[in-house]
Simulated scan of single mutants.
Amino acid sequence: MNGRTIYLLAALAGGGILPVQVALNTLLRRYVGEPMQVTFVSYFAGTLASLVICFLARYPLPASTSLSQTSWWMWIGGCLGTLYVWSTIFAVPKIGSALALGLTIAGQMIAALFLDHYGAIGLTKYAASPTRIAGVVFVVLGVSLVGYAKR
Score class of each variant (00 low, 15 high):
residue 1 M to F: 09
residue 3 G to H: 12
residue 3 G to R: 09
residue 3 G to Q: 07
residue 5 T to W: 15
residue 5 T to F: 15
residue 5 T to A: 15
residue 8 L to Y: 09
residue 9 L to F: 13
residue 11 A to Q: 14
residue 12 L to N: 12
residue 13 A to H: 01
residue 13 A to N: 10
residue 15 G to N: 09
residue 17 I to C: 04
residue 20 V to M: 08
residue 21 Q to I: 13
residue 24 L to E: 01
residue 24 L to C: 04
residue 25 N to E: 06
residue 26 T to I: 13
residue 30 R to S: 07
residue 33 G to S: 06
residue 36 M to I: 15
residue 36 M to N: 03
residue 36 M to C: 04
residue 39 T to P: 03
residue 39 T to A: 08
residue 43 Y to S: 08
residue 47 T to N: 05
residue 53 I to C: 04
residue 55 F to R: 10
residue 57 A to R: 15
residue 60 P to R: 00
residue 61 L to R: 10
residue 62 P to Y: 01
residue 62 P to G: 06
residue 68 S to N: 08
residue 71 S to F: 09
residue 71 S to G: 10
residue 76 I to L: 11
residue 78 G to C: 06
residue 78 G to Y: 11
residue 78 G to S: 12
residue 84 Y to M: 03
residue 84 Y to F: 09
residue 89 I to H: 02
residue 90 F to D: 06
residue 91 A to L: 14
residue 91 A to R: 06
residue 101 L to W: 05
residue 102 G to T: 02
residue 105 I to V: 15
residue 106 A to G: 11
residue 107 G to Y: 11
residue 107 G to N: 08
residue 108 Q to H: 01
residue 111 A to L: 02
residue 112 A to F: 00
residue 123 L to K: 00
residue 125 K to I: 00
residue 128 A to D: 03
residue 130 P to K: 12
residue 133 I to N: 01
residue 135 G to E: 07
residue 139 V to E: 10
residue 143 V to Y: 09
residue 148 Y to P: 03
